[in-house]
């Protein structure tokens, strides 16, 4: 997952993303790829606690050098249905709302790939379902979503399932 997310380089083997060999890139190149091509959704949300929902979503825009980040960030928050909670901080939001902020942050720069690491792991099943609906919607509009999960019913949403046990690929479907 770290290698797919360009947080790490493979020690052996090759990883080509969008035609670029990741193992040859430097730190700045990786940062740019993470910024432009990949959106992260974590199990534990990983929002900045001292910043509002809006500011959290603005973050990738700033690192992309966007001068006025606000309109795009508001747009992304509206897309995940949080337009009324933009000035709340993470600790003032429910788990589902936090994950939606994280999704808004992941999709704000329209990356072709979203990586979701157990996105529903910390949520109740109803909220988890809402999140999955959101992913489906994104997927239908052309975003590739790579998701890691332990739950078979969540995995059932995916088009392609790869089962991995103890580091070995069991069933390439």
């Amino acid at each position: 997952m770290n290698i797919i997310g360009c947080l790490d380089r493979p020690t052996s083997g090759a990883y080509t993303l969008n035609g670029t060999r990741v193992e040859d890139m430097d730190d700045n190149g990786l940062a740019a790829v993470r910024n432009r091509n990949i959106g992260f959704v974590f199990q534990s949300f990983n929002l900045l606690a001292r910043h509002t929902a809006l500011e959290n979503v603005e973050l990738p825009l700033f690192y992309a050098g966007v001068v006025d980040a606000r309109p795009a960030a508001l747009e992304a928050l509206k897309e995940v249905g949080l337009e009324k909670r933009v000035h709340h901080r993470p600790n003032e939001l429910s788990g589902g709302e936090r994950q939606r902020v994280a999704i808004a942050r992941a999709l704000v720069l329209n990356p072709p790939l979203i990586l979701a690491d157990e996105p529903t792991g910390n949520l109740d099943s109803r909220t988890g379902k809402e999140i999955m609906e959101m992913f489906k919607d994104l997927h239908s509009r052309g975003t590739t979503i790579v998701m890691v999960t332990h739950e078979n019913d969540i995995a059932a949403h995916a088009q392609r399932i790869i089962t991995i046990r103890d580091g070995k690929v069991l069933s390439p479907a």
Binding site: G5, A31, Y63
Partner: peptide
């Protein structure tokens, strides 16, 4: 440290 990690994940370069 966590904040730094998050910032890096969303695209912060080392110099940022």
């Amino acid at each position: 440290t966590k904040e730094i990690g998050i910032r890096m994940a969303v695209g912060a370069r080392r110099k940022d």
